[in-house]
Design a protein around this nucleic acid. Sequence first.
DNA 1: TATTCCCTGTTAAAAATTTAACAATAATGC
DNA 2: GCATTATTGTTAAATTTTTAACAGGGAATA
Lengths: 207, 207
Amino acid sequence: MKNLPDKTVERLSQYRRSLNNQLTKGKTNIFSHELAHLLHITPVQVRRDIMLIGYSGTLRKGYDIKEMINLIGKIIDTDEGQRIAVIGMGNLGKAFIHYLHEKGSKLRIVASFDVNPDKTNKTYAGVHCYHFDRMAEIVKKEEITIGIITTPPEVAPQIADKLVKAGINGILNYTPKLLSVPDEVYLEEYDMITSLEKVAYFVKHRD
Amino acid sequence: MKNLPDKTVERLSQYRRSLNNQLTKGKTNIFSHELAHLLHITPVQVRRDIMLIGYSGTLRKGYDIKEMINLIGKIIDTDEGQRIAVIGMGNLGKAFIHYLHEKGSKLRIVASFDVNPDKTNKTYAGVHCYHFDRMAEIVKKEEITIGIITTPPEVAPQIADKLVKAGINGILNYTPKLLSVPDEVYLEEYDMITSLEKVAYFVKHRD
DNA sequence: TATTCCCTGTTAAAAATTTAACAATAATGC
DNA sequence: GCATTATTGTTAAATTTTTAACAGGGAATA
Ligand SMILES: NC(=O)c1ccc[n+]([C@@H]2O[C@H](COP(=O)([O-])OP(=O)(O)OC[C@H]3O[C@@H](n4cnc5c(N)ncnc54)[C@H](O)[C@@H]3O)[C@@H](O)[C@H]2O)c1
Ligand SMILES: NC(=O)c1ccc[n+]([C@@H]2O[C@H](COP(=O)([O-])OP(=O)(O)OC[C@H]3O[C@@H](n4cnc5c(N)ncnc54)[C@H](O)[C@@H]3O)[C@@H](O)[C@H]2O)c1
């Protein structure tokens, strides 16, 4: 399948979460306008996204929820899934692991790293924490493709460098320090303060 | 000033963080291409954003870092600042308060709420935690305009409703449950899983 | 003082994303 | 069975966002 637009990928993730939610409520089918309402977007956009991933609903019945969940899974998780590491087992790192635990996704956190002896050689929500010195070794052995950085910001650049050298393909950076990686590594950065400041701005400047 | 584009507002927040960073390194001026490099964007975009906020650099010297920080502060924080509450003092809520503490921003967290007696009537990083029953009262007294929701997802909708009734103007929702609020309330939602799944997708589908 | 160079500010073009419009058609009601 | 209704799929238009192009103009050089 051709590459999907950035924004469509983000929405697919949200569609899936909403669809799973509907499934637990006993719903088996859903209309574009229902899904749109849940995500605060327009029904057209839902239909367009669904068109882009090559799925089709049935007229007057809408979309089959299970089928859509499966298809989105194939697209995002891929059939083989991916293996993930968290670097920095502080508040955020631990919270993340607990949050992802038990989601039953094919994206699995299989290792974590820290340098603090209080953190290393322990297991958090089923994820073992190694000393960061062993990172390259474990990344290879465990076939890890994605690293999530939740260390203090100062060390984030060197962590990123080492992850790249170890052969990782994607980095999700939660420190406020903006990173630089080679083109072939996909980098996503998120800072809570930006979200908060965005709300602050639009609260004061909304029409 | 006319309303700025969504994306520009997000970047302003990042500009400011990067500029503060440069300031501590002793830099007083910066070129568009330098700032662009830090944010992985193009110099044109930097210049355009700066044009939109009505600031001007000097030819051959670039932009005055302090002046830009001040101006961005006026735009995002506004002169009076805003007062913020966190609802749900679990892992994420506490982490957030610690993270924002000591940033010296005009956006200040002035209260937090929980229902668990283990959490209430304590102070975390200088922020008092009240029982959620007192929320409406405190929101009025403390003139709180923004609420950050970090409760379990199940209760998020009812929390949001009550925040809206209490007269809040903006909500930042970190639970994976998508919310619905009246138009006049600005809503921003963020789910870490979406970021992770986005990385997962583009790692496998990058050209 | 002329010339070159570098960097800004801005308008115009391009690209990405969203929204509108509507044809097609299965189910429903009469 | 025929018209009506509801809903999808898709093309085209509109909007938003990014990128390109380039005209200034101040500093440096000579
Ligand atoms: N806590 C939040 O809500 C929040 C929000 C946004 C961003 N952040 C950012 O996320 C990051 C983590 O925040 P936190 O609250 O979890 O911090 P934290 O101090 O609790 O955790 C950081 C962890 O990284 C470990 N570490 C330090 N150096 C390391 C290294 N070289 N290699 C591996 N591990 C190392 C530390 O031992 C510690 O366990 C910070 O950059 C913070 O700015 C935090
Ligand atoms: N921890 C993460 O990394 C992470 C990441 C993304 C999203 N989230 C989401 O953020 C939210 C919080 O996560 P967490 O790990 O901090 O959970 P948590 O269980 O540690 O904290 C939740 C807190 O909310 C309080 N609470 C429960 N009901 C309440 C109510 N009605 N009013 C006020 N407070 C109430 C609880 O007492 C608890 O202190 C969850 O929705 C979670 O899914 C967490």
